[in-house]
């Protein structure tokens, strides 16, 4: 049952990912990407990372993709006027990505022996466990990410606001 779920979600994720890349209409791309995100959230739940899953939904599906969607709507980009790249370029892109994939597959060899599954701790996905790690070991990154977000806010404001000064 669980295995089936895994493969089902994987299939959905990959198929949706493919559609993101190939869909002509950007809005469709966004929607497919949302589907892919939900599939990934499903994977998180399978991995017992419920907190992660829900945060993933909130952040990616709930905020990021909404922003994408609203920008696409705002700019009215629904008409798929993207001129096709030449086939050679397409082929080159596909080959490059394919090679990358092949490299990864090659690198996979013997992974099982390297990473012996640890005795499974089913508590790590819980908020309590994560919170402890986050606020003990990863306190500094947590704090400095404020700089990141603040600069992003400043950026969004100064770049798009109509009348500065």
């Amino acid at each position: 049952m669980i295995q089936f779920l895994f493969y089902f979600l994987s299939f959905v994720a990959v198929a949706a990912g493919l559609m993101v890349v190939t869909a002509k209409n950007p809005v469709h791309s966004v929607l497919y990407l949302i589907i892919a995100f939900f599939a990934i959230a499903g994977h998180y739940i399978l991995l017992n990372a419920q907190f992660l899953a829900i945060v993933h939904i909130i952040v990616y599906a709930g905020a990021i993709m909404v922003l994408f969607l609203s920008v696409i709507m705002l700019l009215n980009l629904n008409n798929d006027n993207e001129p096709a790249k030449s086939n050679v370029l397409k082929l080159a892109a596909a080959v490059a990505a394919g090679l990358l994939l092949v490299t990864f597959t090659g690198a996979l060899k013997g992974t099982e022996s390297i990473i012996a599954a640890q005795p499974f701790d089913d508590q790590i996905g819980y908020v309590k466990a994560l919170g402890k790690v986050l606020f003990n070991d990863f306190l500094l990154p947590f704090e400095v990410s404020a700089l990141l977000l603040l600069s992003a806010i400043i950026g969004a404001v100064v770049l798009v606001k109509h009348d500065l000064k």
Binding site: L140, V144, L147, L148, S151, I154
Partner: peptide, 23 residues
């Protein structure tokens, strides 16, 4: 001394510059 700080550092370094590039 942690790769997370490397990643965050790069992003904190870059994001303001993306903005400045378009200023």
């Amino acid at each position: 001394s942690n790769l997370l700080m490397l990643f965050l550092g790069i992003e904190i370094l870059s994001i303001p510059l993306y903005i400045l590039a378009g200023s």
